[in-house]
Every structure is written in C-alpha cells, then in structure tokens.
Amino acid sequence: MMIKPLRKAVFPVGGLGTRFLPATKAMPKEMLPVVDRPLIQCAVDEALEAGIEQMIFVTGRGKSAIEDHFDIAYELEATMSGRGKSLSVLDGTRLKPGAISYVRQQEPMGLGHAVWSARHIVGDEPFAVLLADDFMVGKPGCLKQMVEAYNKVGGNMICAQEVPEDQTHMYGVITPGARDGSLTEVRGLVEKPAPGTAPSNLSVIGRYILQPEVMRVLETQEKGAGGEIQLTDAMAKMIGDQPFHGVTFDGRRYDCGDKAGYIQANLAIALGRADIGESVRAFAVDLLR
C-alpha cells in the first residue's frame, strides 16, 4: 500500500463563537489567547511541527483578524525594530508566501460542509483537519503523533480520547476493533449518540487525517445531528473501504470551546511559563486559601 505524504491541513474557522459572546462579537473565537498566543496560532504551530506545508483556512464573515494575524504588520515591526525590540515574539505568525490559503464557507452548515468547502485546494491529496477549539498539549504535539502513526498504517485517522460515559452524547463516538498500543481500529462511528446508546466511551477529538475520497462522500452527504452536515457521518461511510484508525493522544486536551475549559487552559499554561508561572502560582494559592 502506497502512503501519500501529508502536506496540507484544513482549519475550519467560520464558526460564530456564540458561547463566548460578547467577547466574540467583533473578534473571532479562534483569536482568543491562551496567555498570549491565539488558539489558531497554537493549532498552526502544531501543524508546522508535524511537517504541514500548506494551511487552508475555511473562514466566514468577520474573520479578517485571522488573515491579519498571519500577515506582515509593517508599522508594528518597524516600530519594534526602531526601538531595538526583538521580533522573535512574532515567530510563527509569518509563514512562507503561498503557505496559507483562504476559502469562505458562506453558510454555517456544519463541520462536514466546512471541510468540503476546501475541496479544490485539497485536491487529490490526504489532508489533516485541526479544530482550534481543541487545545492539545503534549510532546510531541498531537498531529505529529498522528502523522507518525499514519506513516505506518495509512488510510484515515482520528484523534481518540476516553470521556466519561455521561458525556458521550456530546461527541462523535468510535465502535472500536483491535487495539495495538495507541492505535485502535475503527469499525464504526456515530455522531452524538443518545445517552446510554454509545458503542464505547472512546470519543473523536478535533484532529483528523483524511483521504481525499471523503470529499466525494461529503458532496452528497445529507444533514445529520443538529441539522448540519456532519464530518463524522461521511467518515463512517468510508469504513471498510480504507484503513481507519483512532490514535489515543499522549498528552492533555483542553476544550477551549467551553468557558471552564478555556480558563483551565490559560491557568495550566501560565503555571508552566518561566516568566509568569511563579507569580500566577502564588496568586492561585492565595486565592484558594
């Protein structure tokens, strides 16, 4: 079996971010910072570490701040340079010319529709999908762990993580097959199963490696859970036609689409920072006292 190299990644960033209103009224939720690094920057950093060469952003109205973030800021850089300040803090915000593409998802019709909107840029290549809301912390990063597994077995791959039984209705859930270390054969997928009906507690987290054939499935995919075109439903139709595995991430995930998860991520990262960790820890101890 020939395994095509993974060069492209899709970032669906067209969501409205209603759970973080009013903060996201004028700012994309993907630009919310974890300490001082926007969520979308963290996802791009993860993709770069995994060897991704082309970033494809599926955007919507009001998302121009994301484009500006990954562009050259002449006035800022000239002012900083003129004052003798290092520009290293901006590393990662300026990628090579042509390394980023943007396409609009005109209607919020679900994750599957967002991914399908990038079909012409993806072309006939395997591609990754990264959801910036899922903030993944580990060494190596989540996508790099998945790429290392993908280079061995090929096919389609999802990040998998165990969740409490009473939370399975919030996720796509795997029907598991054979297990080999961090790899689990995927025999079935169901999006947001009714409470008590989930085939396991192994959930689908926001990292995927998919073969281009999924675009042809999404072309005719009907609406599923929530009245949206679900990526999980399209992936389920590919099981049996191509190898399909879940990779259990060796690290920690923070759900930054949830307010509590977002605060937890900020606290955890702040505590691990050499520049502010001691101060934040002292404050937290005093606050909890």
Rank of each mutant, 00 (worst) to 15 (best):
T93P: 01
K63I: 01
D133P: 11
P140Q: 04
A99P: 05
T197V: 01
E222I: 05
W116G: 02
L271Q: 12
V44F: 00
A132H: 03
R94T: 13
D258Y: 15
D286E: 15
I40T: 07
P212Q: 03
T18P: 04
V204I: 10
E222A: 08
D166T: 07
A282G: 11
L21P: 02
L76R: 11
A26F: 11
R216G: 02
G62M: 06
G110M: 03
M2C: 08
K192R: 15
T197I: 06
A9N: 07
E213V: 00
S200Y: 08
A118D: 03
G277K: 15
A178G: 01
R19E: 12
D36T: 09
K237P: 07
L16I: 01
S64E: 12
Q106I: 02
R104K: 09
G112Y: 10
S203N: 02
E46C: 06
L48F: 05
M170P: 07
P243Q: 04
A234R: 06
A265D: 08
D255S: 11
D45F: 00
M55V: 10
V103S: 00
N151K: 15
R83M: 14
A128N: 06
R179E: 13
E67H: 13
K237A: 13
L6C: 09
P199T: 06
L210W: 03
E53F: 04
G188Q: 04
M215F: 14
V280L: 15
M27F: 10
P243S: 06
V58P: 06
I52C: 10
M235P: 04
M136S: 04
A270G: 15
R61G: 08
E213K: 00
G110V: 02
Y171E: 03
G226Q: 03
V13F: 05
D233F: 08
A114S: 13
V129H: 11
L87A: 15
Q264L: 15
G141R: 04
C142Q: 06
A265S: 09
R253N: 14
A236G: 09
I276L: 15
A9Q: 07
C256P: 13
E67C: 11
I229P: 02
R179L: 10
A26P: 03
I263Q: 14
P12L: 05
G181E: 11
T248V: 12
L218K: 06
K237E: 13
P176H: 10
G92T: 12
A160R: 01
Q167G: 04
G17A: 04
G240L: 00
P108C: 07
Q230A: 08
M146S: 05
V58G: 02
E53G: 05
E75L: 07
I72P: 07
R19W: 10
A23R: 13
K152S: 13
V115D: 01
S182H: 14
M238W: 00
L267Y: 12
A9W: 08
L287M: 14
I229M: 01
T18R: 13
L287Q: 14
M235N: 05
M157D: 03
I209P: 01
G277L: 15
K139I: 01
R104M: 09
V10A: 11
Y254G: 08
P212I: 00
A50E: 04
A282V: 12
V163T: 03
L130A: 00
V115P: 07
R179F: 10
K139C: 01
M157G: 02
Q230H: 09
I72R: 12
